[in-house]
Write a protein that binds this DNA or RNA. Structure first.
Length: 474
RNA sequence: GGCGCUAUCGUCUAGCCUGAUCUAGGACGUCACCCUCUCACGGUGAAGACACGGGUUUAAAUCCCGUUAGCGCUACCA
């Protein structure tokens, strides 16, 4: 049974990169009939916040990612909050201590800093020199007397290590060039990330760890630790990182790429997942649009690329537009109405709105654009090009429109045709000169759905009002 | 600085493992045209890339080495 996990720390809102990691884990598990576990890494008490923990669950759910085990879905390997697993970590630290695989280290943080600084100046690898391992009983007693609290460090015994990465292939490390004995428990008694991750991955029976490339260099530590504790390490796969439009690394502070923001801008979750999956993964044929179900069927870890990529908001818009277009009118109305309600952008008569919504299905790329489009229901919308409506040519068109209107059956789409036919002989304008004034008068916008669809929805009263209003401009 | 990862159109990518079918395919974006008595939607087309330098080979985007660049790690953050 394949078991994967997504293990965020609740120190900010989830962004595109986080979600991609979660998504790839999820898709991989689903495809193989495995389990997806959510674990919250909140060992950093300073920066972790409950508010972010909540947000992160909501955002994942919104995206369509459901966990088989995790907060709120208790399984047999819980608890799934690291802050509730402290005794477990402690017991493993004790065991490593007893077995002599780790030791209490009385070197202070300041000393460590100093030694790395020096190493750097001398162009040696900037690493801890393991001095704490060799302190005499007397030195330790002295330091204790000075009130120094020890950390616990893991002893690196065998520095040569090679691993097979699911995405990168063979990777070799020589730990001597990289690091010395590393801290697994802080002076305040709390476990470090490395210890907690290893204990949890082992105890939660995680088989595949798919995470960001920023952890690739941490992996040797994890393999060593796991082996020292008597566990078989999981298979690792390291995903390349995503960068922002300017090529900058993604950060939790960057609002433009936070999930919250995408939600607010009115993206359709399966489309967002589709677009995110295309970042670093491709099916191999030229297909690009996948439903949520299809994605789970075709996703393949082996087809993930190794190079970092830049997120392109334009492409996301396009993918989203494609998804919207393939929705049924019913679904489109349901989804878009839900969006408008959530963001309180429904200041108009709801029945009227529901009738109008399908008209926009082929025109918008995300729900947020509906806000503007719906302004045509308002009596007081503004005109994108007011000057055009003031030209004598436009006035002539509007005047004629008012004259023919009463004799037209406006309730049907065919009414629009009749309207145009009646109008044409009365005015000089044709083509764009004829239709742009009408479009502007009716909708206020230069772009939008076909006029023949709007026509019957507005109906006689509204049509008349709108033409009159546009005509009164000067 | 040390170590590691990466390198195909502006962007996302296919091709690379298993060299010849690649005068490098698709998509977004851009531009042009078509559809539509208007704009958008849709359709067709154009411009646009193998980072650089060496090797190996009859043959290299594809294999090897080096250079350069970007990114990551180098925390008692995760």
């Amino acid at each position: 049974m394949i078991r994967v996990r997504f293990a965020p720390s609740p120190t900010g809102f989830l962004h595109l990169g986080n979600v991609r990691t979660a998504l790839f884990n999820y898709l991989f598990a689903k495809r193989q009939g495995g389990k997806f576990i959510l674990r919250i890494e909140d060992t950093d008490r300073e920066r972790s916040r409950e508010e972010y923990r909540q947000a992160l669950s909501e955002d994942l759910l919104w995206t369509g990612i459901r966990w088989d085990e995790g907060p709120g879905v208790e399984g047999e390997y819980g608890p799934y909050l690291q802050s509730e697993r402290l005794e477990i970590y402690q017991s493993y630290v004790n065991r490593l201590l007893d077995q002599g695989k780790a030791y209490a280290c009385y070197v202070t943080e300041a000393e460590t800093e100093e030694m790395k600084h020096l190493a750097r100046l001398e162009k040696r690898p900037p690493r801890f020199d393991n001095r704490g391992r060799f302190f005499t009983a007397q030195e330790i007693a002295e330091r204790k007397a000075r009130g120094i609290k020890p950390t616990v460090r893991f002893k690196i015994e065998n520095p040569m290590l090679r691993m097979h990465d699911l995405i990168r292939g063979e990777v070799k490390f020589n730990l001597d060039d990289m690091m010395g004995d590393f801290v697994i428990q802080r002076a305040d008694g709390s476990p470090t990330f490395h210890l907690a991750v290893c204990v949890d991955d082992a105890l939660m029976k995680i088989t595949h760890v798919i995470r960001g490339e920023d952890h690739l260099s941490n992996t040797p530590k994890h393999i060593l630790l796991l082996e020292a504790m008597g566990f078989k390490p999981p298979q690792y796969g390291h995903l390349s990182l995503i960068h922002g439009p300017g090529g900058e690394p993604l950060s939790k502070r960057l609002e433009a790429v936070s999930l919250r923001e995408f939600r607010k801008r009115g993206y359709f979750p399966p489309a967002l997942a589709n677009a995110i999956a295309l970042l670093g993964w491709s099916p191999g044929d030229n297909r690009e649009i996948f439903t949520w179900q299809e994605l789970q069927q075709v996703f393949d870890l082996a087809r993930i690329g190794k190079s970092a990529s830049i997120f392109d908001p334009h492409k996301l818009d396009w993918v989203n537009g494609q998804h919207l277009r393939s929705l049924s009118d019913q679904d489109f109305v349901r989804l878009s109405a839900a969006y408008l309600k959530e963001y309180k952008k429904l200041p108009f008569d709801e029945k009227q709105v529901l009738k109008l919504l399908p008209v926009f299905k082929d025109n918008i790329e995300r729900f947020e654009q509906l806000t503007e489009r719906l302004e045509i229901l308002s009596e007081e919308f503004s005109y994108e090009d007011e000057a055009l409506l003031k030209t004598p040519q436009a006035k002539e068109v509007l005047q004629a429109a008012l004259e023919v209107l009463p004799s037209i059956p406006t309730a049907a789409e065919s009414g629009y045709e009749a309207f145009v036919n009646a109008l044409k002989p009365k005015v000089k304008a044709t083509g764009k000169n004829l239709f742009m004034p009408i479009r502007l008068a009716l909708t206020g916008k230069e772009h939008g759905p076909e006029l023949k669809r709007i026509f019957p929805i507005l109906a006689f009263e509204n049509l008349k009002k709108r033409f009159e209003r546009a005509l009164s401009l000067n």
